[in-house]
Structures are given as structure tokens and as C-alpha cells.
Amino acid sequence: MKLYYSDVLSPRKACAVAKYLQIPVEYIFLDLSRGQQKTSHYLAINPNGHVPTLVDDDRVFWEADAITCHLATRAGSDLWPQDERQIEIIRWLSWAAQHFNRYAGELYFEYIIKARFGLGDPDPGVVTDAQQQFRRYAAVLDAHLEGRRWLVGNQLSVADFTVAITLPYAEHAHIPLDDFRHVRDWHNRLNELEAWREPFPT
């Protein structure tokens, strides 16, 4: 298997799951600042021109959530359980994309991506709105996590890797994580995993 990645949000969860599952993957780094994700070779694999992409023999997977589920399936791991918990996991994947990480991702972009790629200063209006909306949805997550160790059932799943993906950057991205104790404690549990703390190959 080949995993095309860069050291940004979406590839982070794919790399973290691959490392957690100890799957033998050939990692191929794409330098986004040099436009390597837009070459004709890469666009033939992923016409969206984004990372990550997983190539597994003759199968190609574009999106990080699909990649994490495929890796778990290939490994026979309960990170992607083969029962009714799949519906609950899909709910959290969708919720993260539409709400929680939508706004946390805006803060990540304003404070981290703009600085990294020379795209200007954070937009105060975007920051204020994103922080307000993040607090709204973080409150939902915080309530769900009260008395729980992980998001779905009693064990780690791909939902945890996806929903938490912006939180390692909370301090630098001005994400108000400290306002939500249960979310913070949950992320601290993820930080006990080396694959979460250091997901990218060295």
C-alpha cells in the first residue's frame, strides 16, 4: 500500500490510524508549497488534487475517513467495527465534517495555514465567528463525553481519530479547548497513544 500525505489535518488522521494499526505502508510525502499535489501523475490518482490518497493494489481511496475505515478493515481492527456501531460512527464523522471541525478547521487555517504559506494575517471576523461556533458544537461533544472514555461504545474507533483531528493544534490555532473539560480529558487520553502524538513518518 502507498499512502500519499502531507503534514496537514486530513492526512494526519490517516497516518495516525496506519501507525496505530502498525500497517506496512509506503509513505509518499507531497510538498504542498511546491504544488506536488497538482502534478499530472498525482491527479491521475486523485483528480481532486488533495491529500491523503491511499493506493492498495488496484484500489484507490481519496478521502481520509474512507482511508481510515479501509485500513481498519484490512487489519481486521475494531476501529471500524463490523456491526451496528458503524451507523453511530458515521454520524460522528458527518457531524465533525459539517460542524465541529468545520469551525475548528477555520481557526487552523487562519492561524496555522496562513502563516505557513504566507497567506496573510488572521481575519478577526472569521476568527470571532469560528470560535463562537466551535463553542456551540464543543458543548454538544462535551455533554456526550461526560462519563464516557471514547465516542462510540466502550472502545477507540475511527470516530475518535476524526473528531479530534484539530485538537493537537488547539493552542496555536486559538481553539478554545480549555473551556470544555470532558473534551479536553478525552483528547488527553488520545495523547497517551504514540500514533496520535507523532503520526507522521520520520
Rank of each mutant, 00 (worst) to 15 (best):
V17F: 00
R102K: 13
R181E: 15
I113L: 14
R102S: 12
P199Q: 01
Y108Q: 09
F200Y: 15
Y5V: 10
A130R: 03
V25M: 14
L119G: 01
P176C: 08
A130Y: 05
D185T: 09
L119R: 10
E194Q: 13
A159K: 02
A143G: 10
G35Q: 07
Q133E: 13
L107V: 08
T166R: 12
D65G: 08
A64I: 02
E198V: 11
I87F: 14
P176R: 10
R181A: 15
R34P: 03
D179C: 07
E194K: 10
E84T: 13
A16Q: 00
L3H: 06
R148L: 04
A143S: 11
V158D: 04
I90A: 13
Y103V: 07
L9F: 05
E171Y: 12
Y4G: 03
Y169W: 07
D83H: 07
Q132R: 15
K13H: 07
T68C: 14
P124F: 08
K13L: 14
L71D: 03
G153L: 03
V126T: 15
F117N: 07
Y111G: 04
M1T: 02
E198H: 14
A96N: 10
R184P: 04
D160Y: 00
E192K: 09
I175G: 07
Q131N: 05
L3G: 08
L43Y: 10
H182W: 04
A195E: 00
W150A: 03
L93C: 05
F29R: 10
W150S: 03
I113N: 06
R181H: 13
Q86F: 06
A75S: 11
P47D: 12
A138H: 11
V55T: 04
A138L: 09
A44D: 12
A64M: 00
W196G: 03
R74W: 12
